[in-house]
Write a protein that binds this DNA or RNA. Sequence first.
DNA 1: ATGACATCTGCCGGGACACC
DNA 2: GGTGTCCCGGCAGATGTCAT
Length: 343
Amino acid sequence: MSVVMPRSTLTRVRPDLSIPEVRTSSEWKLFLHFARSGRLLRDPDGPWQPKFMREVDMTQDKPCFLPKPAKGTVPLIEGRMVHQYQFSAKRYVSGTGRRSLWLPNGKDAEEIHPQFYISAEKLPPQAQDRFRLNRAGFCDITGQTNERTMLASRIPSGVVCGNKVPTLLFNGDPRNQQLYIDSWLAIVNSIPFDWLLRRVATTSVNYFLLLDLPMPSIQPNSKEGTTLAHLSEQLSLGRIADAWKRAEIRAEIDWRVLSAFGCDAKAMELLLEDFPLLDRAQPTLPGESRSTITKDLLLLRTAQHLGGVSRSRRDLWGERVAGAKSVGAVAYIPSHLAPTTKN
DNA sequence: ATGACATCTGCCGGGACACC
DNA sequence: GGTGTCCCGGCAGATGTCAT
């Protein structure tokens, strides 16, 4: 299957002329639709105006790292600790470098167990004020074929991030900063944005990649923006114990972002083809080799709210979700953070 | 200061083979 | 024929180095 990509069209949606990795003409059409209906993150007239920062360098600043907390030290957040809506998803156990052992942080998501601490006084100049602010951060190390490519979370004041976790703040009214952070997190952690990122990313998420991707036309301080920010906040606070309630929030964010791009369930079906590794740790439906609970739930909710597919398809997804629930599957559980079940 | 790149590790599944 | 074990290679996830 070949995809025809006129140079004039490409120039408009990819000013640097880099080729997005689309496999079919339907995917290319969808990429163009997203690009035309959204606005680049870098748009000087757009709402975001992000300010990125690399805080601590894992190589250059290594001599300052301490293995234990002490008076005046702050925890160091490394790439592997950051997951979607969680800045301390893993806790350090033992070992160093590639041989270090990390385990899922489990229920106590608010407790931070880093490998290193650093004295606040020894932080590089750019991080001196930064670490006292609430901000957003993301894991730079990734892959376009990983379960998810974009892993972004709130970074609270009082911790500092390694160079594989760039942080960002948004220009504009400082009283709205948290609103901007939370709605940005909702958007970039969504399936539609992740799909876009997977078209242009390889093994790392750098500033330019993000700046040149379209954001859905959502003003953070609009009704839509605050709805997303509120949903995102609930996930970040980690106070919702019920995993299915969290899954429903994730699905709501995903269909709302897709809706802001002006698409329906038909598009969501195409997007989800690019996420084959979801739900690896979930129990399967009888006779099937792999769980598709996230896909089924998200398609069901998208169809219910945005339409775009026949009633019979929608009903099928409804039955699959009910069936998966009855065997104990939960949607939106990252496979390597799932509780390990030994049978 | 930054992104590209090489390479490492754990994990998993398939194939070959031995043994019951 | 069925089952257990070992090896190998691919994949996912991660990290350090180097050129610019």
